[in-house]
């Protein structure tokens, strides 16, 4: 059972990192960014290319891996900003349906664009860049050191984001726009810049999650963002969409629930997705604002 808990928490960290991007973007422009899960996948892909294409990187070992992680975050962040600028910004005043459909289209472009360049086969992460196998026993389970490191990284990222949003001018601007875009404009907040920044941060976090995913699981593919993105969205809704801490809490909750489901199905993991999405529908029905979200009066 401890093992279930550990597995669940690890998975939850990956979900939470992706969910944060979903939640931040939804919070600020009320868009379900379907392409977000694919940014996660894209991050893994470019990290893979850097790891294999740059000669001599292997000798730098773990330092190189972290260098690649940071570089990938910048690149995915840039991709997010680019997508927003090209596809979403021109439609900001268009009907919501157009924006959602564009997001679906962007998701296709990313998935099948990646398929074009990286192929449709599952890609094996370079052995040396995968995390070592040393493990520490905890009660009746074990946790690999690599997991511990990756969890530490993701928690550090989330805490950093927390400080950023609550403690800086830019963070305050983001919260202001989320509350009232027009009023923020009138107060001199640069709305376009702030929205770009949100896309940058959200996409960078998803990119980080992608690299971590590759490092840990060792295999990546062009479609992996679809299901994981959907799960991360579920996590965001469970926690309370638009709420940062909600995204983290939802991610961890969903990770735990999923591993527990597999545990109770005696290791058969075919039903875990059904349980997750069932939960999504249940939450949207009974408590659409999630665990942490407040009931907001919607003004006309």
């Amino acid at each position: 059972m401890t093992q279930v808990l550990i597995d669940g928490l690890f998975l939850g960290c990956v979900y939470a990192l992706i969910a944060l991007g979903y939640s931040m973007v939804y919070g600020i422009i009320k868009l379900l960014n379907f392409a977000h899960g694919d940014i996660f996948m894209f991050g893994a892909m470019i990290a893979f290319t850097m790891l294999t294409a740059v000669p001599g990187l292997q000798s730098a070992g773990i330092v190189a891996v972290f260098g690649v992680l940071i570089l990938s975050m910048f690149l995915t962040g840039g991709t997010g900003v680019l997508i927003e600028a090209v596809a979403y910004k021109p439609l900001r005043s268009a009907p919501r349906l157009s924006l959602l459909i564009t997001a679906v289209g962007m998701s296709f472009v990313l998935e099948y664009g990646v398929k074009q360049f990286w192929g449709s086969k599952s890609i094996t992460w370079p052995q040396w860049a995968q995390m070592g196998a040393g493990s520490i026993p905890i009660f009746d389970g074990t946790i690999t050191i690599s997991r511990l490191v990756l969890m530490a990284v993701s928690i550090a990222l989330m805490v950093g984001l927390g400080f950023y949003i609550n403690g800086t001018r830019q963070g305050r601007a983001m919260r202001a726009i989320a509350l009232d875009q027009r009023a923020s404009t009138l107060m001199g907040v640069d709305v376009n810049r702030t929205i770009s920044l949100v896309f940058f941060i959200g996409s960078a976090l998803a990119g980080a999650a992608g690299v971590m995913f590759g490092m840990y699981y060792g295999a990546i593919g062009f479609m992996m963002g679809f299901l994981l993105g959907l799960k991360a969205f579920t996590a965001a809704v469970i926690g309370g969409i638009g709420n940062m801490y909600g995204a983290m809490l939802g991610g961890l909750t969903l990770g735990l629930i999923e591993r527990t489901t597999v545990y109770f199905c005696n290791g058969d993991d075919s039903w875990k997705d059904v349980v997750s999405f069932g939960l999504l529908i249940l939450f949207l029905t009974l408590r659409p604002t999630g665990i942490l979200g407040d009931r907001v009066v919607e003004r006309m």
Binding site: A87, P90, T102, G105, M106, S107, F108, V109, Y112, G113
Partner: peptide
């Protein structure tokens, strides 16, 4: 891929 691009282009 082309359908995806087409979708975005049509919407824009």
């Amino acid at each position: 891929l082309y359908f995806g691009i087409l979708l975005v282009v049509v919407m824009l």
